[in-house]
Computed example of a mutant assay.
Amino acid sequence: MMQVCVLGNGQLGRMLRQAGEPLGVTVWPVGLDADPQAVPWQHSVITAEIERWPETPLTRELANHAAFVNRDVFPVIADRLTQKQLFDKLQLPTAPWQLLASRQEWPAVFALAGELAIVKRRVGGYDGRGQWRLRPGETDNLPVECYGECIVEKGIKFSGEVSLVGARAKDGTKVFYPLTHNLHQDGILRASVAFPSASAEQQDQAESMLSAVMDELGYIGVMAMECFVTPAGLLINELAPRVHNSGHWTQNGASISQFELHLRAILDLPLPRPVVSAPSVMINLIGTPRSWEWLKLPLVHLHWYEKEVRPGRKVGHLNLSDADKGHLSASLEALLTLLPEEYASGIAWAQLQLQ
């Protein structure tokens, strides 16, 4: 029997478990504080839904497990400093950046960044947390403890955000989904739109960059890369060494979901390129109670995380896919009447992408 233990028992681990069931693969999402004796890790392949974790009895056991896939890669990508250094080593394009070591560096920072600097914690911080947008005269807003623990980037003027989700097998074979267009608001992904084919120039550049990263790290499994679209081409924003929110549309919009693709890669199963034959839209459900009314719309697929509903918390997502863009747009219009008003801008953005 094939078994996989997922370090972390959030929604990504839950969806990996769901993807394993049709394959006859048993997937065990486990919390960081689980009793090692209660987890069948000794005879499992180990993966993770998170980039970093504290030391616990379980993580101490897993640290020495030979079947912990990408164990030594996670620390490199989890720290934005070493992640940026990796990009520089591979000569991959990013926003100009530096380590923010002290207050005395601000004049040099703004000489490089211009009028807007983006400060990010080296570790932790997601969905807009642990990040600051600062202009000259606003630097006192940055907590003192951030110095030495943050990087700072030049604020980039970009026309859009895209992500590439791909997977690499143990033999180096790589497959990719088409680029996904993303809308972030307040640092949180609100909506994604994907098409069967993307701009050939952007797709080729993105695949080349993500391939270079995965090959350099000897990475196995699904990895996601977020990029800014600029007149000069794509600039890498960040990496995620795992299945990713912007790839959730693949559950209903591709022949193989990102979750199954990850399991195939880490278990050394066949890894064909997924087939995408129709446009897809994903709407994140953020702090919104579940409504069965959504299911009255035939194109809507609900993925609910069984989490307590709290403001700003991702509690599920809705996937829609159809070969007719008009049908997709009409379904989004109908969905708009079933969601709170804060979803209006995201749905309007998605409809604009479908035109």
Results as ranks from 00 to 15, higher is better:
D186S: 09
G187L: 11
I188V: 14
L189A: 15
L189N: 14
R190V: 14
R190K: 15
R190N: 12
R190W: 15
R190T: 07
A191C: 15
A194S: 14
A194D: 10
P196E: 15
P196H: 14
P196D: 15
S197T: 13
S199W: 03
E201W: 07
E201M: 09
E201S: 13
Q202H: 11
Q202L: 13
Q203R: 06
Q205E: 05
Q205M: 05
A206P: 02
E207I: 06
E207C: 09
M209H: 00
M209Q: 00
L210Y: 02
L210D: 02
A212Y: 00
V213D: 01
V213Y: 00
V213G: 02
D215P: 01
D215Q: 08
D215H: 05
D215V: 05
D215C: 04
D215A: 03
E216I: 00
L217W: 00
L217Y: 00
L217S: 00
G218Y: 01
G218T: 00
Y219Q: 01
Y219T: 04
I220H: 01
I220D: 00
G221A: 03
V222Q: 02
V222K: 02
V222A: 01
M223L: 04
A224S: 03
M225A: 10
M225W: 06
M225Q: 07
M225G: 06
M225V: 08
E226W: 11
E226S: 10
C227L: 10
F228T: 02
F228N: 07
F228C: 09
V229T: 06
T230M: 06
P231S: 12
P231L: 11
P231Q: 10
G233F: 05
G233H: 10
G233Q: 11
L235Y: 08
L235S: 10
I236Y: 11
N237K: 01
L239E: 03
L239Y: 04
V243C: 11
V243Y: 03
V243H: 06
H244D: 09
N245V: 15
S246N: 11
H248Q: 15
W249S: 15
T250G: 08
T250V: 08
T250N: 10
N252I: 14
G253E: 14
G253V: 15
G253M: 13
G253F: 13
I256N: 04
S257C: 12
Q258A: 05
Q258N: 03
Q258C: 03
F259S: 05
F259W: 08
E260N: 11
L261M: 12
H262Q: 08
H262I: 09
R264M: 13
R264Q: 12
R264S: 12
A265F: 05
I266Y: 01
L267R: 14
D268H: 15
L269H: 09
P270F: 11
P270A: 13
L271R: 06
L271M: 05
P272D: 12
P272T: 14
P272R: 14
R273Y: 04
P274E: 07
P274D: 02
P274T: 07
V275H: 07
V275M: 05
V275R: 04
V276M: 08
V276I: 07
V276F: 04
V276D: 04
V276R: 03
S277E: 12
S277F: 05
S277C: 09
P279G: 11
S280Y: 08
